[in-house]
Design a protein around this nucleic acid. Sequence first.
DNA 1: CGCTTGATTGATGCCATTCAACATGGGTGG
DNA 2: CCACCCATGTTGAATGGCATCAATCAAGCG
Lengths: 247, 247
Amino acid sequence: MDMQIDMAQKAALPSSARPCPRQGCDRCDVRTRAICADLSDDDRIALSRIGRRVTLHAGQTVMWEGDDSTVVANVIEGTLKLATSTGDGREQIVGVVYASDFIGRPFGVRTPHSVTALTDARLCLFPRGAFDGFARDHGALQHRLLQRTLDDLDRTRDWMLLLGRKAAREKVATFLLDMGRRLRPDRDGVIDLPLSRQQIADILGITIETVSRQFSELKRQGVIALVGRRGVRLVDTAMLEDLAEGI
Amino acid sequence: MDMQIDMAQKAALPSSARPCPRQGCDRCDVRTRAICADLSDDDRIALSRIGRRVTLHAGQTVMWEGDDSTVVANVIEGTLKLATSTGDGREQIVGVVYASDFIGRPFGVRTPHSVTALTDARLCLFPRGAFDGFARDHGALQHRLLQRTLDDLDRTRDWMLLLGRKAAREKVATFLLDMGRRLRPDRDGVIDLPLSRQQIADILGITIETVSRQFSELKRQGVIALVGRRGVRLVDTAMLEDLAEGI
DNA sequence: CGCTTGATTGATGCCATTCAACATGGGTGG
DNA sequence: CCACCCATGTTGAATGGCATCAATCAAGCG
């Protein structure tokens, strides 16, 4: 139930941090999808002056649940998890973010959940106060942020149905289909999961053993194939869809 | 598992709908807390021209999951639930909204979840297209909406921890404390729950029988007292806090 | 190689669900 | 007003799914 807490280290504004170079945004991989997409060139340059690039290693935690909200960021590359925990160490992953997603809590004093890198990652990091001020003055940015937050809320509420009402088999099937949609398989049709069994368990609200058993059972039925520790091939997606709905 | 579907009727833009009277906002109970709070008097009048008042009876459904998003609204009075369901009829309540809250999906084509009145309710209803247009032109409104959506997202994610990781006892204790904070007790300290056992079960992701058993057990321990069907008195909140954390 | 970490598999027990019977109480009509 | 009814809530007993505890297996690595 405990999550590699030993591995997690405070991302102490690492030495890899450097001011976002002025025309850096021109080459930014996510500039057309991130919340800064609708800004004019001048405004984007102004925003980039506030931020700086930060590199994270897998396992590093950028923000801690309950801490003061001091920074927000765009994810340029990599995958991160958002999580909350009970006092006695049970963890629930409340979101997984990918390139072009936005993290942190703007317009608020407290960080509501921890943010931890699942893979190595690169962020475009902003001090919250400066970002808030900029956002207030730029409707386009605020509108993008609103759109994204509304989408996040919809997805999060959908996930509540899974957590509250679905059985382990349905949870795992739903998860696999979700990953299949999000991650492109290689030429053999194998998806490389960015998550350990423990992390999958923490997303689905079950234990690591149950995840493993469900995987094995699905493999035995020929619905999926397991390739190494993190590889999965979805052999019978139609069957998987049925299982996800509890049929 | 089925939710009074017989009772639910389409709120067919009922005859009680009437244009929001021009200076109606001046007397509106929620004008200082709803998203229109920061608008100038002129802007608020302009917004009120778009909207109209609607009265709902308990059990009526205003929006259906998956339908086109055609309207949004402020809640003026009453309590409503947001819910999603699986194909086979299992329901999960994903949010409960109160006076001054905002409902519906602005800036999107699909309504992600159904909205149903738990008590009689009054809404200030806007056609989505007109509302979206107004919001785009009024940063203050959009900012308020963003703030509210961010808060909703925080609360929703917190609730995921309960759904995914808490045991039935902890869920019920957490729920009771939450209601205690939100609803003012009468002079005897009794809270009148706006929810049936089935609805409580649908919020917590458990069955109606489990809710009932947990209530009875808490009553037997002297932590709460039950008054009629919907009355609860929180006798020992400290104990309840411990139980909510799994101690 | 041993050691560590992550994943799988097995055995057991418990808690929540399920199925079922029963209680309560609010509302209605005779 | 009371008897009746139906929806809602409570309680009981049995089942089973998932968690827990624990052992084994499989990789990666110094």
